[in-house]
Design a protein around this nucleic acid. Structure first.
Lengths: 385, 385
DNA sequence: CGGGATTCTGGAAACGATACCATTTCAAGA
DNA sequence: TCTTGAAATGGTATCGTTTCCAGAATCCCG
């Protein structure tokens, strides 16, 4: 009954009439044979295509005997349903697309992982693509995913203000949710962290420590998220009547060392640094070490965004932690809510930190709270981790 | 099994006859409308479907006038070809699948990024899935990708020795390339790093430094790659007549601290540690710091696998670096070589480090070299980075 | 201006799975 | 035994695209 077809090493996979040829002698397995189709299974099992279809979709309304027989044939032939045909027929591809700046970025890959878990729970496949923060590649990826008829899309826009993307998203025929960065001026749902509040709170924390000259190192500052953090920092220092000092020059270790050295040699040297992204934090940390500046005694350091080794290095680095997995998870959940229709009249969203109005119903704009992780570099937790 | 078992609770996603309903009044844009089809474009442009098909495939053999007109209609209607229908017809999906343990793992996500670049260069989409090192999920992902009719597959097997996966891969009808970890006993091509040689060389380096009691901390030790590294370590210490001491107990910071403390208090304390994976290196580093053990004066440290902050922490950590991007790139290239047939008679593979026989033609088993990055923790580069 | 060679063009048959709907089977009650 | 409904099953149109093949339009030169 095991009428496995096939032979190995076929140079021409062309549609020869060898669908049922016997196994070739010299190769053990059925490599390179054309995959079996549903109707072949049906013929082999002596049933109709409908029955086979029912079997692979759960076996409802099929007699146990037939069910077993068909299952056996499926197993023997190594049959796998052709998604393409399925998709073409129905209107659900069970596929959602994700566009992030980079797969290798720990922040986004963690989001992606969380989103994939949700997708899997909803019996869907997540396709991850990288835009490298290039609006052009981003649009290209968008087109690819649309071509593949993704049921829905998650996107972390390279440019929150770009009209091109906004217009494109608005005329899309599938639901879209923006992740980490909103699409300004558009109606697409979004899940973001409260960068403003997180940065303000962190700055306030430094102020409470007694630091008077808190300088903010932005790194690349064009992104929406960074802008928000700058706003937060500004709000805090201005409320406290301190100086608002921004340094946007740090791009690598060298520029960090140069910038910090100049500032320390200047008239009004900083007693604390607030860095707005991971790489900047690391560059600044490295530079401070190199310049033999004691942390936090001479200069304190607090960074936005946590990273694996922040607690390992000496001194450990205080950070504002974002709810990374939650961003991915909630975004995906929001998307599936849209996908499954307005089935659930009250979608309540739990936020990262207890902080007052933490539930919103049918929220299309979800804002997640950050958490301050005080470690040694800001003056907290002087000795151990 | 496949998605066969599925959810029994199907809430009936009805198929209403709402294909062409007009846009709801309260929404500004043409959201939720069914995407245009090729034949609609054809009708709109007053041509046959064949012509439209030709236009979207490059516009060969179409008169300039018709070409322009059809292109205009396509633009106006926002038409995107339906991949599913395309795939169903032809036999190329322009899609390849990648199965890795985790998306969030920096090593694998970098591989994935490199592989995606190659895929894109070959006009294909890379679908990344995570197995979490679980053979069961791995098989499930495999089935999903096969269902989606991926043209080819890249897999970093959770278990190099598992017969289930091997058999499955051998009867697959698409080319497969194993990445980072081979599939033992199978004929599938593979791209791996030379873990044995890398570990042996690193151990030799420690021996040349004069360390006499080199202990190897494996962490989780069941993976093929770790086993190879153990072999390399063993070969080096035995060749030098030193003791072969393995510690497989380290799982987290706590166990690292306990293990290291005990060893140092023991009869024959180590003067160097060789850690076989990232997390173990970090745990050991942290523990040494905590125990106030001077690195490398009291105990040297050398880790397998590089990570971003290895050069930033004090002392900087010496490591064996793997050619991460190259692994991803070469694997994908090998896959596309298979995909495009035996078109290129001599596929030469460049290896990471000049080291003798670095080219192999038509290599189905590619081995890439590691590189030793000596930093402070092994006794090299005593002061600066 | 006419023949043949191009170049364009469109009709219709696939591709594989699904779902409507019609048909058959079967068991139990009358 | 006949009726009757439920359960099991299969035929077939359909999804949107490509491709084969044939037919129509156009061109080039003698």
């Amino acid at each position: 009954m095991v009428g496995i077809s096939g032979c190995a090493v076929r140079l021409h996979w062309h549609r020869l009439f060898v669908r049922r040829e016997l196994a070739a002698p010299h190769r053990p397995m059925t490599k390179r044979s054309r995959p079996a189709t549903l109707s072949e299974v049906a013929r082999e099992a002596g049933v109709g295509t409908t029955t086979v279809s029912r079997v692979i979709n759960g076996g409802e309304r099929v007699s146990p005997k037939t069910l077993a027989r068909v299952r056996r044939v499926i197993e023997a032939m190594g049959y796998m349903p052709n998604q393409a045909a399925r998709v073409l027929k129905g209107d659900r591809t069970k596929t959602i697309g994700l566009i992030i700046p980079s797969i290798a970025d720990p922040f986004f890959s963690s989001c992606a992982e969380a989103a994939q878990a949700v997708a899997r729970a909803n019996d869907s496949l997540l396709i991850v693509t990288a835009s490298h923060n290039d609006p052009h590649i981003e649009i290209e990826n968008l087109n690819i995913l649309i071509s593949h008829r993704a049921d829905g899309l998650i996107i972390a826009p390279a440019n929150s203000r770009g009209p091109a993307l906004r217009d494109m998203l608005d005329r899309l025929s599938v639901p879209v949710v923006a992740m980490d960065r909103p699409v300004q001026g558009s109606s697409v749902a979004s899940v973001v962290t409260d960068n403003f509040k997180g940065a303000r709170f962190a700055t306030q924390h430094l102020i409470e420590h007694g630091y008077k000259h808190i300088v903010c190192l932005t790194g690349e500052s064009t992104l929406f998220t960074i802008q928000e953090r700058i706003r937060g920092y500004r709000a805090a220092v201005e409320a406290a009547g301190l100086n608002y000092v921004l340094n946007t020059s740090i791009k690598d270790y060298k520029s960090a060392e140069y910038a910090i050295e100049s500032m320390l040699a200047g008239a009004n040297p900083p007693d604390a640094l607030f860095t707005l992204k991971n790489s900047t934090t690391i560059f600044a940390f490295e530079a401070l070490q190199k310049l033999n500046v004691a942390i936090p005694k001479d200069v304190a350091l607090l960074g936005f965004d946590d990273f694996e080794l922040a607690s390992t290095v000496r001194p450990s680095i205080s950070v504002v932690q974002q709810p990374v997995e939650e961003i991915g998870r909630v975004t995906a959940e929001l998307l599936f809510d849209q996908l499954l229709g307005t089935h659930n009249a009250s979608v309540t969203v739990s936020t990262h930190q207890a902080g007052g109005t933490s539930h919103s119903r049918r929220a299309q704009q979800v804002t997640l709270e950050t958490r301050l992780i005080p470690r040694a570099s800001c003056g907290c937790a002087p000795s151990t981790t």
